[in-house]
Nucleic acid binder design. Structure first.
Length: 481
RNA sequence: GGCGGCGUGGCCAAGUGGUAAGGCAAAGGACUGCAAAUCCUUUAUUCCCCGGUUCAAAUCCGGGCGCCGCCUCCA
């Protein structure tokens, strides 16, 4: 039972063998901080958070680095538009990013470096590339010489000729080859800049990741991740720069997550069909969103829609209801505990859960299958609950907690989660709690008087307002649907 | 045009050679004054289509159709 991961570089699943036994170095491309993040960013970050958690749970000592790209054309454009300094924009959206990630229950990476705090390392790397003949200055820009790097495009598996045939970009006369890319960009008047041997300027987009990943993880490290859209050009260029400079392999395993789609089309800024994390969290619980994102394999596209989010909501509530049932029974002292067919089934499911979970996760982080196993357990729990004893229920809780910690879902106290969902749904009702409760009292009186016509009228009236009546031996409660 | 991916029940989604997980939804039953929740049962002889390989294919090979992504910044 060993972890296998899909490596974009080889195009196949490979056994995960870290460079240094017991340790993992992982770098994930963060965001360019020029605006609020959308659900696509949420997916990438949740996915790699899950991977980070699972590697740790598997016993690895993980160094996880996720950068902030805090200097870039988009940041400058936004700053000009808003009439503020570039760093006002970057600092603001770093804060917003941190808030969003915290709401999505992400664990903090080991390091979160910023490009602007590594200008020295970037300049040194560019100088080394010039020295080795892999880069050249042209005006106040520095470009990477792609045809000098023999294995260029090995990650995206293309060739230079085809790329140029399909190229839609204007040819820059200052480049030796149309595909050469910028390592350093000279500053135009009014732009932010740092001093360099090539004049005042700023780093190109790709070089920062090479400089920062090497600084924190060494010249060769285990895992580099990001969205599929970064394969070309970003990751391809990172490989070229870094391997040209060091002469060593850059990264052992390249992992890429699939897109979030809207109506089967990629969510993106340019298409304008995106939802920000903040917008979505106004309408859905963060844990529901996380659950939704983990309900498909991380490499598959996932379709964002109200229906799919509502299904995720129903699904996670099913799990929490079972867990809440366990807590209630434990609090009541497990009356009438007895072994039977049902508890035997639960024992059996429980005994294999950890192994089935590990097997799913070891197969390229198959969270969809892992969640399936959790639902499987839930069914057995519900069945056995009326007769289950304390020891068995405590074990269920412990096993589920272990899984919840890795996935970052179902990790809340069940009663609190369900209450939170109720509050969220209740706040959307167009009827006050006082009105609901008075109607319920009236219904109780009608029921007592066997006036079922009236009691049913009240129930249907409430139902029409999305309120479900729940009768039990302890009395009547209600919930928002 | 080049490269890559996908097509599994009403919907979502696992499953890469051994005879279709799981969730949502729906229907019937138990429970209930009636409901809801929960439990039980049912819902793909079949995995886009057509060929082929094999004792055996959703899974491999060939062809076709459809959808998507990358090739420009993008998670």
């Amino acid at each position: 039972m060993a972890l296998r991961v899909y490596n974009t570089l080889s195009g196949s699943k490979e056994e995960f063998v870290p460079i240094t036994p017991g340790k993992v170095g992982m770098y994930v491309c963060g965001v360019t901080v020029y605006d609020n993040c959308h659900i696509g960013h949420a997916r990438a970050n949740v996915v790699f958070d899950m991977i980070f958690r699972y590697l740790k749970a598997s016993g690895y000592d993980v160094t996880y680095v996720r950068n902030y790209t805090d200097i870039d054309d988009k940041i400058i454009n936004r700053a000009n538009r808003d009439g503020v300094a570039y760093n006002e924009i970057s600092e603001r959206f770093i804060k917003e990013f941190d808030i969003d990630m915290a709401r999505l229950m992400l664990q903090l990476p080991t390091h979160q470096p910023k490009a602007t705090e590594h200008i020295g390392e970037i300049i040194a790397l560019v100088e080394k590339l010039i020295e080795k003949g892999y880069a050249y200055q042209s005006d106040s820009d520095v470009f990477f010489r792609v045809d000098k790097f023999a294995t260029y495009l090995k990650l995206s598996k293309r060739n230079l000729e085809d790329m140029q045939a399909g190229a839609r970009i204007d040819v820059d006369e200052r480049k030796e080859h149309p595909m050469d890319f910028a390592l350093w960009k000279g500053a135009k008047p009014g732009e932010p800049y740092w001093e360099s041997p090539w004049g005042n300027g700023r780093p190109g987009w790709h070089i920062e990741c090479s400089a920062m990943s090497m600084k924190y993880l060494g010249e060769t490290f285990d895992i580099h991740g990001g969205g599929k859209d970064l394969i070309f050009p970003h990751h391809e260029n990172e490989i070229a720069q870094t391997e040209a400079a060091t002469g060593k392999p850059f990264v052992k395993y390249w992992l890429h997550n699939g897109f979030v789609n809207i109506n089967a089309e990629k969510m993106s800024k340019s298409l304008g069909n995106f939802f920000t994390i903040k917008e979505v969290l106004d309408r859905y619980d963060a844990e529901v969103l996380r659950f939704f994102l983990l309900s498909a394999h991380y490499r598959s596209p996932i379709d964002f829609s109200d229906q799919n989010l509502n299904e995720a909501d129903q699904g996670i509530e099913r799990i929490y209801k079972a867990l809440a049932g366990i807590d209630e029974r434990l609090a009541a002292g497990c009356p009438g505990a007895a072994a039977g067919e049902e508890t035997a089934e639960l024992e059996e499911k429980l005994g294999t859960l950890a192994a089935r979970f590990a097997e799913a996760m070891d197969d390229d982080f198959n969270t969809a299958l892992a969640l399936g196993h959790l639902f499987d357990l839930v069914r057995s729990v519900n069945k056995a609950l009326p007769m289950a004893g304390k020891e068995l229920l405590e074990r269920v809780k412990a096993e589920v907690a272990g899984i919840a910690k890795v996935l970052g879902v179902c990790d809340t106290v069940p009663a609190e989660f369900l209450k939170r969902m109720q509050e969220r749904k209740s706040s959307a009702l167009d009827i006050s709690v006082a009105e609901i409760e008075s109607l319920i009292e009236e219904r109780a009186a009608a029921r007592k008087a066997k006036d079922f016509k009236r009691s049913d009228e009240i129930r249907d009236l409430l139902l029409s307002k999305n309120i479900q009546i729940l009768d039990s031996a302890q009395g009547t409660t209600w919930k928002a649907k």
